[in-house]
Amino acid sequence: MKIIYRIVGLLGTVLFFSCTSDHRAANKNDDTLTVPGDTSASTMIPAPTPTNAIPYSDSTGNEKTVNLVKAKLATMFKDELSKKLIDEQSRKFKLFEHNLNKEPEKEIFVGLTGANFCGSGGCTVLLLSAKGDLITRFTVTGSPILIADTKTKGWNDLILHSDNKNHLIKFDGKKYPSNPSTQPVYTSNPSQTLVKGLEDSDQLYTW
C-alpha cells in the first residue's frame, strides 16, 4: 500500500510589509522565531505546532526560504507598497516547497491573500525558483495545490482548482500557464496519495 505523502514543504507566515506595532517586540523565551536582517522592529514568525504529518524537526530550518520570499515580495510589489495600495490583509503569505524537476533544489509555491490578490475565482499563487526567481504567477487559483504523478518536459504536472473545477497544468519548457481556468479540466478524482500544498485546512502556520 502506498503511504499517503502529506505536504512536504513549509507553510510559512510573515508580513512582507514592515509593521511597527508594539506586539512585534517579544520576549526571547517565547515560542517564536525572529527573522534576521530586519533593521526595523523584529518580525516574528510563529513556531510550528508538531503534527504526525510533519515532524517539528523537519519544519524548522526553512527560515532562509521565508526570508527569501519576503525579500522577493517586497521587491516585486515595491511600487504598490510605497504608494500604500496594498491593504494590511494582503501583506501576508504562506509557502510550500516541493521539487518539481530533476534539479536538487526545491521550487517554492507562495500563496497570497486579501483583496489585492483574491477574487471570486481564487487567489494569486506565485511559483518561484529556489533562488527566488519568478517562474509563474498563477491567477484565480484555489486551494490546495496538487502535485500530479505525471510529468511534462521534465516537470511535474499540477492540478489546480479554478473556476470551480480542477485543471491539469503542464510545463511548457519555461513556465506553467498562468491562468488555470483556461487549461484542460481534470476529470478524474485526484489520488489521495498526491502531494498537497497550501491546503487551507492543513497548515502548520497561520498566515
Rank of each mutant, 00 (worst) to 15 (best):
R91S: 08
L127I: 12
L10M: 04
L33F: 03
K165R: 14
K196S: 08
F93P: 08
S82Q: 13
V8M: 06
V125H: 09
H98R: 04
W155Y: 15
N156I: 07
G122E: 07
F96C: 04
K106G: 13
R137H: 07
S188P: 05
T182L: 10
L128M: 02
K175S: 08
P177W: 10
I159T: 04
S178D: 13
F138N: 13
D149L: 08
I4G: 04
S120E: 14
K165N: 07
N179C: 09
E88L: 12
K196W: 09
W207H: 13
A148Y: 07
P184N: 01
C118K: 15
T75G: 11
W207D: 15
D31W: 14
S120M: 12
D172H: 03
L134I: 07
G197T: 13
D157A: 09
G37H: 01
S191M: 04
K151E: 05
D22R: 14
I108G: 02
S129C: 02
F96M: 09
G197S: 11
K70W: 07
R137P: 05
F16S: 01
L146V: 05
A148E: 10
N99K: 13
P55K: 02
G122A: 12
L134Y: 13
I54Q: 03
A41T: 04
T139S: 10
F96K: 00
T124L: 10
M44K: 15
D30M: 11
T13C: 10
N189M: 13
A71P: 01
T152M: 03
F117I: 09
E80P: 05
D163N: 15
G114C: 08
Q183S: 01
I135D: 00
P55Y: 00
L168A: 06
S59C: 00
K64L: 00
I145K: 11
V195Q: 10
L134C: 10
H161Q: 12
V66M: 00
L198P: 04
V69S: 02
A74D: 11
I159W: 01
N189H: 15
Q89E: 14
A115F: 15
A41K: 08
F109S: 06
A53Y: 00
L168C: 06
K153Y: 02
S181P: 07
I4T: 12
Y176C: 07
T43R: 14
D87S: 12
P46I: 06
G197R: 06
K175I: 01
S129N: 06
S178P: 02
D30G: 08
P184W: 01
I86Q: 11
L168W: 04
F96G: 07
A25T: 11
L68P: 03
P36Q: 03
M76C: 10
K84G: 08
R24P: 03
N156Q: 12
M76F: 14
L134P: 05
L33V: 01
I147P: 00
D31Y: 14
E103T: 08
S21G: 14
S82W: 07
N166E: 11
G142R: 15
L127F: 10
F171E: 09
K83A: 14
I135G: 04
S143D: 15
A74L: 06
S129L: 05
C123W: 14
S90G: 10
L204A: 01
K174D: 05
A71K: 13
T34C: 01
G132V: 01
P104M: 03
G114V: 09
N99Y: 07
A47H: 01
D172V: 00
P190C: 04
N99W: 03
K153H: 02
S181H: 11
T124A: 11
V66R: 02
D202M: 01
F138T: 05
